[in-house]
Design a protein around this nucleic acid. Sequence first.
DNA 1: GGTAGCTACTAAATCGATTAAGTGCCCGGT
DNA 2: ACCGGGCACTTAATCGATTTAGTAGCTACC
Lengths: 312, 312
Amino acid sequence: MPTPTPAPRVTIRDVAQAAGVSAATVSFVLNDTPGQTLRPETRVRVRAAASELGYQPHRLARALREGSSRLVLLKVGALPATGRSLPSLIAGMEAELHHHGYALVVSYGDPGRDTELLEAVAPHTVLDLPAIYASPEATADGGWAEGFAAHTANQLGHLIDRGHRSIAFVVPHDPATRGLARLRVRFAQDVAAQRHAALRVVELSPSASVVEMLRALRPAAQSTPPTAVAAFDDDTAFAILSAMVDLGWRAPDDLAVIGFDEGPHAALWHPALTSVRIEAEEFGRRAALRAIGLDPGDWIGTPSTVTPRATT
Amino acid sequence: MPTPTPAPRVTIRDVAQAAGVSAATVSFVLNDTPGQTLRPETRVRVRAAASELGYQPHRLARALREGSSRLVLLKVGALPATGRSLPSLIAGMEAELHHHGYALVVSYGDPGRDTELLEAVAPHTVLDLPAIYASPEATADGGWAEGFAAHTANQLGHLIDRGHRSIAFVVPHDPATRGLARLRVRFAQDVAAQRHAALRVVELSPSASVVEMLRALRPAAQSTPPTAVAAFDDDTAFAILSAMVDLGWRAPDDLAVIGFDEGPHAALWHPALTSVRIEAEEFGRRAALRAIGLDPGDWIGTPSTVTPRATT
DNA sequence: GGTAGCTACTAAATCGATTAAGTGCCCGGT
DNA sequence: ACCGGGCACTTAATCGATTTAGTAGCTACC
């Protein structure tokens, strides 16, 4: 069992003693507290002593005093972690927060269980992704949803550009992704309406198989059956591709398939899956800035690109 | 931006006042501090006041005093998160820690950047998975590696049971999984030696393609080319299956393939991948108990089962 | 009858950093 | 000669829980 810190802590008092000043002065210097007049040479002496001793402020003590610690908690819940957008969002946030002396804690646990976590880390800000996605006016919240709107437009756009006019939008049956799915559906409908394509929304059922769902897509009576499927995410696309093999259908001729939020498996799959690649790193940086109360400045949007492969 | 706690905090002093005792007494009661003699009715009064006011101890204050918070940090690093073992390990740890009033923080970030995290959360224990896997005598450490030994035996055993006597063990070329790969290789070699099978260890090269690797497996001169591949993980197995399609080889007749640490994609793939399913939940519970210094009791081992599918 | 020892508590120190409220000292103005 | 005020700091309070060192009051034993 590894023990955390056997080394004796260097406190602010040690630094104060070494620099020949009081602890308060050390705090003023190291935090650049505004409204404090200090002799430049004192500042130098304090800083020298601090780095000499390798002083690291005890963040728990600081958090106790300040009321919250310099941490941002990102609640991810049971959101699908297959795509690259979440990891890249996290990477971006982490990098930016690090730059400002903050740290990121990512919670994948179920929401009911995170009371301890919340209490124990006393985050400066909590970003609850499932909650954001689930809220109806998610669009109003600083760009979270605008991005998804653009990416969804990208996804459907790719199919429409290739001539598809009747498209099925398939979402999984999963309470964890309900909010996000609803959001995506709304955006997909907007795009379809604008570009004069017919959109059919299909929710996978836990009872019926994907094969049955696909069969139902093409009843004899239906005049214009969908020629393409836009999936909620790559995993949904894989499930569809898998069922297509069972049916003897081939992509893209019998049915084109496009995934969303491209993950590492898209290129590996047979046939290789066309998907929408979302680079959320820059977006993560901006989310981080907003979270700690800094102005992220102007913004044009998260870039997303469609990587065309075998299934479209 | 959601602010964390606008509600005024109920402190131990509030409880003390309400119960007509001192703060110290409240602490003694609520923590069942040994060596303290308290009248039962006082205990009742204090507990009543605490729950009446909805008192929750401030964990930062407690952590400051105790030197570390009741948190366990699990460092996962860049370990592959595809399989189910890691999520189930995490779920098990989380459940058990929760039960003892601890919380789990999982860090996926790179090791260099987690100083802030470490400092900010001051964990009671740090479990550094990559480091554990990388250490040469990992076997000695409370069962982490024993499990992998058993699962690897299970993986190779499945192939040997089906008559394969010449097996290739394929590991990815990835510094992040180096330590774990080395460990697995050692166990695989042990099993092969015990069960009189020939084992060839192949590391995928970043320059050569998987197709080339497969071709090299069957040179004309070689007397007993491998008839089966045991992969480091499911993703490696997918890469192999993908290359086999390009070569026109079929599993299992031309080459049998078995994955490891079954993830959700194994069943979806065509052909469906045989893999080793690892349920690490119970193991996670035990790891949690050890982490907080409790005795997990006797143990027989993490169960793992091979789900036979099309590729073997 | 003195004191040792127990019960049932309380007062105060402590963890380490932040910050409001001082405290000398010197300078300028009247 | 006296006072206001800025400079350059220090003292002490504070965040909230834990824990050591007491302190009454009572019993019991030699």
